[in-house]
Design a binder for these strands. Structure first.
Lengths: 146, 146
DNA sequence: TTCGAATAGTTGTTTAACTAACTATATGCC
DNA sequence: GGCATATAGTTAGTTAAACAACTATTCGAA
């Protein structure tokens, strides 16, 4: 049984994802120290808008692996912070296209630097080839369960 | 710079931990289907009590990587479900020792089977040695940021 | 021995995830 | 054209995480 690699007692940390929560916490602290008034979840939405501005909430759901109510609330809060704007689509009036404000565009560089910095701190002492294996394993896990 | 493995554009999924959230979601669905009225977070507390019953809330904080308010609330909810009991320690009256109820003990076997099943589904197609590397990398990441 | 610091736990507030139920618009089939 | 169905998004309710501020108890050192 090549895929039954987990015995009782080893399950826990794989399921609870302590590494990714530690990364997120560290990044959140860096945001706070840098006076970037952003949660990691809000940042994760902006991240995709920086790559492509003016996408729908549904596309944000797919990109961020969240459901629709989660994106509704994140966009609500980002609108309150004046970082994004909802614009009703002209082709399909069911859709809101989400656009960055100039303030949000200004935050890209600083926040991405902090994110890279965080990952580099996280990966101190990990050989590059093992990082690649780890990324690949996590991708397969995600695809298996999707 | 051997540790600067991340270029812009690759950060996202490592930070957001989509694999572990996918595992947790799958396990939650299995719990629901099996009429196990438990959240994954509640299960993660019971998991440690099944290994050692009668530990303090602080020990649960350390074991589950949560802060004290989180454990206070999880124990509150587990008490409401009649799965654990708080018992004031006689040696140190600041401490609550947390004990499983018989109902909670009954849930161990079924829930652990579902957890193993979930991980085996998650890891289909991943060679065992790569799982080990991935586990080691995630441990180092956690230690680096702790 | 007592007073300040540390430790264990709680409460309040904000943000977010998930489910279910809902509205509004669009699509497609008869 | 009209109605069933699918899609986009919202609202309500429960659970949980993070942080700050708080109470109660214990420890330790002058």
């Amino acid at each position: 049984m090549p895929n039954n690699q987990f015995k009782k007692g080893e399950l826990y940390s794989f399921i609870t994802g302590k590494a990714s929560t530690a990364i997120a916490r560290r990044l959140q602290k860096k945001f706070n120290s840098a006076q970037l008034n952003l949660t990691i979840e809000q940042w994760s939405v902006l991240y995709h808008l920086w790559k492509e501005d003016g996408i729908s909430q549904q596309e944000l759901c797919n990109a961020t692996f969240r459901d629709k109510p989660s994106i509704t609330r994140l966009v609500d809060n980002l609108e309150k912070l004046k970082l994004v704007k909802r614009v009703a689509s002209k082709e399909d009036r069911r859709m809101n296209m989400i656009y960055l404000t100039p303030e949000a565009r200004k935050m890209q560089e600083a926040s991405m630097e902090l994110a890279e910095e965080t990952l580099n701190e996280a990966l101190i002492g990990v050989p590059a080839d093992q990082v690649e294996i780890c990324k690949a394993v996590l991708q397969i896990v995600y695809d298996n369960l999707k």
